[in-house]
């Protein structure tokens, strides 16, 4: 009998605690958790790419595609089911990810970052000038329903919260498993030495494609959840600053564990909430200083800082 995997245990415990806490937390905390966990899901996808040394500076593309897919389906087709909608977001982003992946897989380093940025800005350019989608203002997403029933505001919020918690824990478990497989372990291998991977008989581009589609699917689902939770979508979801924020969370978190992106995203959300309340004029400065500190002093992100302090203790 092997010892149980610590990450799996921690994730299952986090799931129980978070769902239970959902009944007591004030509404601002629930919203903060939903948005943070959703952003954590995107960062999880970026983390997998970052383990290969790739940084997508356009992940907001899939985040926005997920959000807009939900908004459109809800508005035009009157499908508002709370389970179905996020799946639509995932499907739309995945399809796009598979298609764009055929191009992205050929790119590395700065060129990967630039092409992903280009794609996201293309989508942004499309959104800001499309009047039927509300141009720069975007539009409101209808309240989701459960099996055709419309619940109270409170119940809807709790439901979305539980759904987000379940999704976050679910994808974290899935990615954790993926990172232990041969394909998953090729991520660091690829960053270290692509030539060797090729000479072991495997196509580096295939690994990158898989990672890219995974990242797209996660970002799409997260965008869908965010759109439902916030109740509004607009083109800024696809703008490069959103991508920058997502990359920021990834770097802040580190690549040591699938739990890291969620912790990092939560820290980001907390700083954001309090900074915007008490020191709105220096909020971006705090982010910038934190990012520089991570890059210069903790290249492994918050996670490695945590691990180091635990080893010392």
């Amino acid at each position: 009998m092997r010892a149980p995997d610590r990450t799996v245990v921690a994730l299952v415990m986090a799931f129980v605690v978070l769902v239970a806490a959902g009944f007591f937390l004030p509404s601002w905390a629930v919203s903060l958790l939903v948005v943070s966990l959703a952003r954590g899901i995107v960062a999880l996808g970026l983390m997998v790419q970052f383990r290969s040394g790739l940084v997508s500076f356009g992940q907001a593309l899939f985040f926005a595609v997920g959000g807009y897919a939900v908004g459109l389906i809800a508005l035009k087709l009157r499908v508002t089911d709370v389970i179905l909608l996020p799946l639509v977001g995932v499907a739309a982003a995945t399809l796009l990810g598979v298609a764009l992946g055929f191009l992205m897989r050929r790119y590395r380093e700065i060129f990967f970052a630039m092409l992903s940025l280009g794609f996201s800005m293309l989508f942004y350019g499309l959104l800001v000038k499309t009047e039927t989608l509300g141009s720069t203002d975007g539009f409101n997403v209808p309240t989701p329903t459960v099996f055709g029933l419309r619940l109270s505001v409170l119940a809807t919020r709790t439901l979305l919260y539980d759904l987000t918690v379940a999704s976050a824990v679910g994808v974290a478990l899935g990615v954790h498993w993926y990172l232990g497989t041969i394909l998953g372990r090729l991520d660091t291998a690829l960053r270290d030495n692509e030539v060797r991977v090729e000479y072991l008989g495997y196509a580096p581009a295939r690994v990158i494609h898989v990672q890219y589609v995974l990242g797209a699917a996660l970002a799409g689902g997260a965008g869908a959840l965010t759109a439902l939770a916030v109740g509004h979508i607009d083109p800024s979801m696809a703008y490069w600053t959103t991508s920058g924020e997502l990359v920021f969370v990834t770097i802040l978190s580190g690549t040591g564990s699938v739990i890291a992106p969620f912790l990092g995203s939560l820290v980001f959300g907390l700083i954001q909430t309090f900074a915007l309340q008490y020191a709105p004029s220096i909020w971006q400065m705090i982010l910038g200083v934190a990012l520089l500190a991570i890059i210069l002093y903790f290249p492994g992100g918050l996670w490695s800082a945590l691990e180091r302090s635990r080893v010392r203790a």
Partner: peptide, 27 residues
Amino acid sequence: FLHGRDEVVVVLATYATFLILEDVIQL
């Protein structure tokens, strides 16, 4: 201090600088 680091990491560092300067300008 970033001499020799990955190109993308350097991009992120300048992105951090951009964030800081945005607020400096506003201040």
